[in-house]
């Protein structure tokens, strides 16, 4: 069985996180993030580690981890494609993109490819409504203005083990007429 622990440097960092707040309970979210970054998920044993590290009841950590959707309570693919299908993305073709990705990878939203490379999720608004449709990759890079060609390119990049580049938000001013 895989053993989960934080090394000395990580424990020191956790102490610094705790120091930002009046109590250690408040550090539960940042430390869950740290754990997810390190282990790729916060499965029960990782939650147990977080509880132990912060001296919190395990049930409390479980309650928190299960409340917030970005914590992966089970193992996910190496790249999690969070395709926004909410409101602006919905009306700008978010579902078309989702279905295209599903077809392309041969899995449905909520599933992971057999090789463990990709998971797809249909997610709520990611706050990039003006650049719809869009998706986020593994809680990280936003890929805006999706179309089939762009999806193909992104997946190709990911298959090579690279993240797509960060796209700055387009600075908008009205066209002076």
């Amino acid at each position: 069985m895989e053993k989960f622990e934080f090394n000395k440097a990580e424990r020191d960092h956790i102490e610094k996180i705790i120091a930002r707040y009046p109590d250690s309970q408040s550090a539960v979210m940042p430390v869950l993030w740290m754990a997810q970054e390190k282990f790729g998920h916060v499965e029960p044993d990782v939650q147990k580690l977080v509880a132990k590290t912060l001296d919190l009841p395990e049930a409390h950590v479980y309650g928190v981890a299960s409340f917030y959707t970005q914590y992966y309570k089970e193992k996910m693919g190496k790249y999690v494609l969070d395709v926004c299908t909410c409101l602006s993305c919905q009306v700008c073709g978010g579902y078309d993109m989702l279905h295209y990705i599903e077809e392309k990878l041969g899995i449905k939203a909520g599933e992971t490819t057999e090789d463990g490379m990709f998971s797809i999720q249909s997610v709520e608004c990611l706050g990039a409504c003006g650049y719809a449709p869009m998706m986020q990759i593994t809680n990280d890079i936003y890929v805006n203005h999706l179309d089939k060609a762009k999806v193909d390119k992104v997946i190709e990049t990911l298959k090579q083990g690279k993240m797509p580049e960060f796209e700055p938000i387009p600075m908008r001013v009205a066209e002076k007429s």
Partner: peptide, 28 residues
């Protein structure tokens, strides 16, 4: 009750919205 009276803190509401229910931490 487990938070305030018995103080064992063994239960938490888990999940969210109408999927909510009380549970112990996994494996406990």
């Amino acid at each position: 009750f487990t938070d305030e009276i018995s103080k064992s803190k063994q239960l938490s509401i888990v999940s969210r919205g109408d999927k909510n229910y009380p549970l112990t931490a996994p494996g406990t």
